[in-house]
């Protein structure tokens, strides 16, 4: 999903920086709050960050005959909300921009927006909507993470389409061209990401279920129901 270094002409790279920066600042503020008030949750924060590290390093082959990687941001989004996910995403994107020439510093704003903000926001909204609708917890996690992952790639396509409108047909035509590459390739990978994140949540519930109540991910009755279901 990386927009490569130098591949967003002005004013687009500045625009995406301007949009992402306030979210990052708010995310750092929220992160500080978390570090001060809920120190016992720090290991879980590390796990969420590490999960993004792993998943975004795995470039998987897809049905379209090209490779792409999952994002892993759904876990952080459900646990800590989109703002903190944006900061975690920024760390990973910086690593890849500096050491791997994947993405870049000028396109960092756009990449943070697609992977760190848009994906987590969609995942968060879908998770909350699904739990409100009374859907099974694991199905809610699956949908949130899979669709959040997909959203990242749709947004990347939009970012590129806006910067490179086709001469005939404009933004819509180029969006289709970019989405064919990014979004279509991503569909099976999004399903895998959703499935694996479900497993991670299962293990979090097994070893440290109280944090999910503390983070308002699950209600106490919701948690009890899941535990009854699995035992």
């Amino acid at each position: 999903m990386h927009v490569m270094e130098g591949f967003l002409p002005g004013p687009w790279w500045q625009i995406w920086f301007a949009i992402s920066l306030p979210v990052i600042i708010y995310g750092i503020y929220k992160l500080n709050e978390l570090i001060k008030d809920k120190r016992d949750l720090l290991p879980l924060l590390a796990v969420a960050g590490a999960y993004i590290f792993i998943l975004s390093s795995l470039k998987l082959p897809s049905v379209t005959g090209s490779c792409s990687h999952p994002t892993g941001t759904g876990l952080a989004a459900i646990l800590f909300g989109p703002a903190i996910s944006a900061v975690l995403g920024l760390i990973v994107l910086l690593y890849q921009a500096l050491f791997l020439a994947h993405g870049g510093l000028t396109t960092l704003g756009a990449n943070v927006f697609s992977m760190g903000i848009a994906g987590p926001v969609i995942a968060f909204i879908i998770y909350k909507a699904c739990t409100k609708a009374g859907l099974n917890f694991y199905i809610a996690v699956f949908l949130a993470c899979a669709l959040g992952d997909l959203a990242t790639y749709v947004v990347t396509s939009i970012e590129l389409a806006l910067a490179f409108p086709a001469q005939i047909g404009g933004v819509l035509t180029s969006f289709k061209a970019f989405a064919t590459i990014f979004a279509l390739t991503q569909v099976p990978l999004a399903i895998i990401e959703g499935a694996i994140t479900v497993l991670i949540f299962k293990y979090v519930i097994q070893v440290k279920s109280d944090v999910l109540i503390k983070l308002n991910v699950l209600s106490e009755t919701g948690l009890r129901k899941i535990k009854e279901m699995t035992t």
Binding site: M1, H2, V3, M4, E5, G6, F7, L8, P9, G10, W13, K59, P61, G65, S66, C67, S68, H102, G104, L105, T106, L160, F164, P165, A166, Q167, S174, A177, F178, I181, F182, T185
Partner: peptide, 24 residues
């Protein structure tokens, strides 16, 4: 099985007629 990021570069080339020079 190349990277999707690189394929996007090809589309950009097509859309701009190969005139786009990366800014960095």
């Amino acid at each position: 099985y190349g990277g999707a990021d690189g394929e996007a570069e090809g589309v950009i080339d097509e859309l701009t007629g190969g005139t786009y020079e990366p800014i960095a």
